[in-house]
């Protein structure tokens, strides 16, 4: 009796789980299907779908400046990932493997900055950038992506790098910077991949700061361009969905190939405290 009741509960649970999973993916399927129609209403008729018709995509890229936005997003993402990895692993190495006065005090300051919402510092940073003439620059888009999180993440991983190894390299006459590049960097590769994935997604999806700091349409990132698309082409749903699909496809491809690192990189960002 008990067993039978359980199996019913389990079936219901299974059904709910599947329903939710379908709900998670259906909007994206809808987006793709819609992007291949010329629909001016939302009624999606399967007869309208024509996968050979790429006109929405060519229009999005050609006329509405998506190509430039895609290029900007790509530049920002690649540079953010690169600089975040270099700068954060250097700092993590300094904090974890070097002793210097004020080390823990400075590190605690780093931890404290993690609690500050980005929207609080955004206005002064905007003013600084404006005064320096750096609004509408790649620099301003990239530099804000780099924060204390990467340092915290890498430092906790670097604690597992044995000091003896670094000592041994030193005894062998390996100069300091080479120890970092040749010994430390290869050892922390797993955590760097997680950081790259995290940085990729957060800078690719970043919206408020690009919205605020780019006034020149040639500097828009994809999220800003997509957000404008809906105001420019209110009822051209096929076109808007093509734009959404372009903004979604790159993180999605990365996710398909690097699923484990994705889940770690993104989920760990919450477990920092």
């Amino acid at each position: 009796m008990e067993n039978k009741k359980w199996s019913i509960v389990s079936v219901i649970g299974l059904l709910l789980t599947i329903v939710f999973a379908v709900t998670c993916i259906a909007p994206f399927v809808y987006m793709i299907l819609m992007s291949f129609t010329q629909a001016q209403t939302l009624n999606l008729r399967f007869s309208d779908i024509d996968f050979s018709d790429l006109s929405n995509y060519s229009y999005v890229f050609g006329k509405s400046g998506f190509f430039g936005a895609l290029k900007n997003s790509a530049i920002v993402v690649v540079c953010s990932c690169l600089f975040n990895c270099i700068i954060s692993s250097m700092a993590a190495y300094g904090f974890e493997k070097k002793r210097f006065p004020g080390r823990e005090a400075i590190y605690n300051m780093y931890v404290a900055t993690m609690m500050i919402p980005g929207q609080v510092t955004m206005i002064p940073v905007f003013i600084i950038m404006k005064k320096l003439g750096l609004l509408n620059s790649y620099f301003s888009l990239i530099v804000l992506i780099i924060n204390a999180f990467g340092v915290l993440l890498i430092r906790s991983f670097m604690a597992g790098v044995p000091d003896e190894l670094l000592e041994a390299a030193k005894v062998d006459g390996c100069p300091e910077h080479k120890i970092f590049i040749k010994v430390v960097m290869p050892l922390i590769k797993p955590v760097l991949i997680s950081l790259v994935v995290f940085t990729f997604v957060s800078s690719w999806n970043d919206f408020l700061w690009p919205l605020v700091s780019t006034t020149d349409s040639s500097m828009y990132t994809l999220t800003v361009a997509l957000s404008l698309l809906k105001t420019q082409y209110t009822a051209n749903y096929g076109l808007i969905m093509a734009g959404a699909a372009v903004s979604f496809v790159f993180p999605f491809i990365l996710y398909v190939f690097l699923q484990k690192q994705f889940v770690e990189g993104i989920a760990l960002s919450g477990v920092k405290g």
Binding site: N205, L226, S247
Partner: peptide
Amino acid sequence: MFIPVIASAVT
């Protein structure tokens, strides 16, 4: 279920 997480809020 993780797919909506990777899409941007704007998307």
